[in-house]
Write a protein that binds this DNA or RNA. Structure first.
Lengths: 340, 340
DNA sequence: GAAGGTGTTGGAAACGCTTCCAGTTGGGAA
DNA sequence: TTCCCAACTGGAAGCGTTTCCAACACCTTC
């Protein structure tokens, strides 16, 4: 490349070269009205020829908005969160907004984020991805004075896009019930960072059992942190139960896969000896022949992105909160109980 | 919150309220030297009381840098990429840099990114995460005139952090060799978006077989796109082989898990009937009892982040390219062949 | 007591854009 | 022909910082 100079050409230069005033040059480039077509063409051509690009800082400073959106994301390395972000990114980029990423891995990160609010003055909106915002945090967030949207999470306080956890769990447990299972366990997952929050997927479990006239056996419900290893451990506990379950509903696919490993190691075949169902339809669920309830995180991201664009455009969103449907995906890990 | 006004207080206001000039106020806030301690304290206190925050746009405009870094990432929803980004994010945030995310899912996105270069003028550096930059793209990237770093990929043109694919594959195949396997297949993965690129993990396979004095059987090498379903399909093909392999080396854990599913469906038990080894140590590998070669993407992200900070500080990095070691993790999916 | 620091300060001049305002032009209506 | 209005245009005034420079005070040091 010959143009070693990192192109330090400004609007003034372009204007001069095109033989117009800066005002006109600016209007031409931002395709505003009141510019003669010929003039605009000339300016555009000169700009093109000189690889001119507006200085975002100057532009933003002058017009007052930032053209950026912050994404606050807890566990980026997990499929669900990554997918939501992918979806968000695609629509925001389409609208020429830049995406500022704030990964808040653990409580510490999170506290720091809400304490310092590094996004302050840097964005036009904030998207909270896949976690519940606590009250104190909410108060802090509000001081930003920007739009806030929740994607893939059930934060009631903001416009949001999410699945109905209660229905999803119900779909999973109903499936086990219809197969004829009576002793159905639940592997609950709690967020170690927010241990006080109730499991959002237990109500559906209760609903399904109640509807089937099956009494809840509290000893069949085990709680553990979110994660495969924890799921495996929980399953171990259940195997020690005097009257073990024939069906297991896991909070998520990852937890379910942990349970599957425990079963295999115990010489039990998932689907044949014990049925297991999860939630998510993680790509690896298909590879593990795991029955699950599918949610589409990328789609949730897309919808949340659109919602945000509407808010930024001043259009009140048609619905403050969108629920994305989930669907049961039957695979090999579930079957009628051995002794019905 | 009473302060409903989104705090439109500027440096000038602060200066006036503190009874100092704007210059002094600026110096005090940016803790530069040549400010009397008392004066600084006063300014800081006034700023604090009024929830003053500098306008990044104005600040950047005046000082000329952006304080931002762009991350160009192909498949955010995959564990590897998400993890690298997590690592990067943590160190960049620590240095008070903002992270701009550019997700380039497919060829189209990618072309568009390099064509439009939306990051132009918006960042001080670019990190390319986990993919190879082609020559034309490189030329485009260079026109940005900013630092470029590769994380988790083997782009030789830039300072980078990555594993040694050749060694990693060698570790995997050596393991199979040591167990006594003679017929060892390879499930190659090609990036559908860059089908012309040679597999980076084949050389190690060849090395290992050569070292063991095993002749390469080209019919035992199958190529397919990256992904579990493709791995499953490739494994199916191998099962139809007249003299099928007893050991399988898969390009990645995801591909390996696909192979495992095929084996199970064929009534074969991984580890007992056929050995399978992958690369990555994906969290779900442990849940599937998959033997693998571990790489630590988050660590790669962290190191790449540090590398970048050094570059931005003007310190020439001690080493332009860092290789992160990998290690064999033996689990249940590998064992000596049935008939040795 | 004069000369020369040193540490601190205020203010002006960038930084590169957008937008408002006033001016110019040309064409149609009266 | 005159007048008016619309379409265009140039330039100045911000936007909110940082930084440079001149000014000043107060000490030291000869």
């Amino acid at each position: 490349m010959e143009d070693a100079t990192p192109t330090k050409v400004t609007l003034v230069d372009i204007a001069r070269m095109a033989g117009v005033g800066v005002g006109t040059a600016s209007r031409a480039l931002s395709n505003a009205k009141n510019v003669a077509p010929a003039t605009r063409a000339r300016v555009l051509q000169v700009a093109e020829a000189n690889h001119y690009v507006v200085s975002p800082e100057a532009s933003r400073l002058a017009k007052g908005n930032t053209g950026r959106v912050a994404l606050v994301v807890p566990h980026l390395s997990r499929w669900f969160f990554g997918s939501v972000v992918e979806g968000l990114d695609s629509v925001l980029r389409g609208a020429d907004l830049d995406v500022l990423l704030y990964h808040v891995g653990d409580v510490r990160d999170r506290h720091e984020f809400f304490e310092r609010l590094p996004a302050r003055r840097k964005v036009d909106a904030v998207v909270v991805v896949g976690f519940q915002v606590e009250d104190i945090e909410r108060a802090r967030l509000e001081t930003l004075g920007v739009h806030i949207v929740a994607a893939g999470g059930q934060t009631a306080a903001y416009p949001s896009v999410h699945i109905d956890d209660r229905i999803a769990s119900r779909q999973a447990v109903d499936h086990l019930v219809h197969l004829g299972h009576k002793r159905i366990a639940m592997l609950e997952a709690v967020d170690p960072d927010q241990p006080h929050l109730p499991s959002t997927r237990s109500p559906g479990y209760h609903d399904a059992l109640a509807a089937a006239g099956i009494a809840i056996d509290p000893t069949l419900v085990v709680s553990a942190p979110w994660g495969g290893e924890d799921g495996a451990a929980s399953m171990s506990r259940l195997l020690g139960h005097p009257d073990p379950p024939t069906g297991v509903f896991a909070h998520s696919d990852e937890v379910a896969l942990g349970a599957v490993r425990t079963l295999r190691r115990a010489g039990l075949e998932p689907g044949r000896d014990v049925s297991v169902v999860g939630i998510d339809d993680h790509p690896l669920a298909a590879l593990s022949d795991l029955t699950t309830v599918r949610q589409r995180p990328a789609e949730q991201g897309v919808l949340a992105g659109r919602l945000l664009l509407d808010l930024l455009d001043g259009k009140a969103p048609t619905e403050a909160s969108t629920t994305v449907p989930t669907e049961l995906v039957v695979r090999g890990s579930t079957a009628p109980p051995r002794r019905p």
